[in-house]
Amino acid sequence: MTSRVTFVSAATSPSLRQARFYDGDSVDDGGAARARSAAGSLPSPARVATSPSTRCRETAVALGLDVVQTPELRGLDVGRWRGRTLDEVAAAEPEAVGHWLADPGWAAHGGESVRDVCERVGRWLDAVRDTDGRTLAVVEPEVVRAAVVHVLGLPASAFWRLDVPPLTATELTGRAGRWNLRLGQPPATSDTVSAR
């Protein structure tokens, strides 16, 4: 039995463009247009999973997918930093940001630690590994990072060293108790299809 999980990161939103901790905003017009252009280009899934955030739900709809909210795939809870830019937080709480970036177990912002999100996503992946067929999951970038940390057995400190661009696909294949990883394939859009 082979299980495939394709993670598609959410399309762009104002908070992403402004390096602001996600506050529930919608995808922007450009992100929605790119997602609509990629609709139908992804492999057909047996199951769909979606982070419960607005931008993930909207990305899934624009991709022509059903919205199946999966709480285990929610983004990293940053507590009191929600809605603020990283620069604002770094200016107001430089030591806290330093701890957050250096210590995966730190969560004094009142939210969740990087280690916690890696473990949560890892538990979900371990459960999905025992299912046959493809799962397509539209998720926040930090969920993709957590999945990669988990499947490669990386230390949680590697989390911040993984870049996940908007509207890109990361594929995992699980079989015989292990995962293989295929990184960062952008979904085909009408622009790339016509160029072939």
Rank of each mutant, 00 (worst) to 15 (best):
A49T: 01
V68F: 03
A49F: 04
G24D: 08
S51K: 01
W124Q: 08
D103R: 12
T59A: 05
F21Y: 15
E88P: 02
Q185V: 13
T70L: 04
D28K: 01
A158R: 14
V27P: 00
A176V: 07
A11E: 07
G184L: 15
W81C: 01
V128W: 09
V193E: 13
P104S: 07
P71I: 01
L136T: 13
L125S: 07
D191I: 12
A38D: 06
L181A: 06
C56N: 06
R123F: 05
W81Y: 07
A156S: 14
V143C: 10
R120T: 06
V67C: 05
V143I: 14
A92I: 04
V67E: 05
V139T: 09
V144E: 04
T192Q: 10
P165N: 06
E142V: 12
E95T: 11
E171Y: 02
R80I: 10
A158C: 13
G98A: 12
G83S: 04
T50E: 02
D126C: 05
E72P: 07
P52H: 02
L167T: 04
V27Y: 01
S13M: 08
V193H: 09
R84C: 05
A195T: 14
G174C: 09
A90Y: 06
Y22W: 12
V164G: 00
P155E: 15
E140W: 01
A11V: 07
L63P: 03
A11T: 06
R20M: 07
A19W: 11
V149D: 04
V121Q: 08
G110Y: 05
G40F: 09
P14Q: 08
R80G: 08
D25Y: 00
L167Q: 02
F159Y: 15
V68M: 09
T2Y: 00
S113D: 05
A90N: 11
E95S: 12
E93P: 07
V27D: 01
T12C: 12
L162F: 10
A10K: 10
N180E: 15
R129F: 02
P45G: 07
E88S: 10
L86S: 09
W81G: 00
W124R: 09
R55Q: 11
R17T: 13
G153M: 07
V144K: 02
A38W: 04
S51G: 15
V61N: 07
A108N: 12
C118I: 07
L183T: 10
N180W: 15
G133A: 06
D163I: 12
E119W: 11
A127G: 13
P14S: 08
E95N: 10
T12W: 12
A91T: 10
T70C: 14
R47D: 09
G133R: 01
G98F: 05
D66R: 15
E142R: 11
V128T: 14
L86Q: 13
L73W: 01
R129Q: 14
A156Y: 07
D87G: 12
L162W: 06
R20W: 03
R134K: 01
C118V: 14
V164T: 01
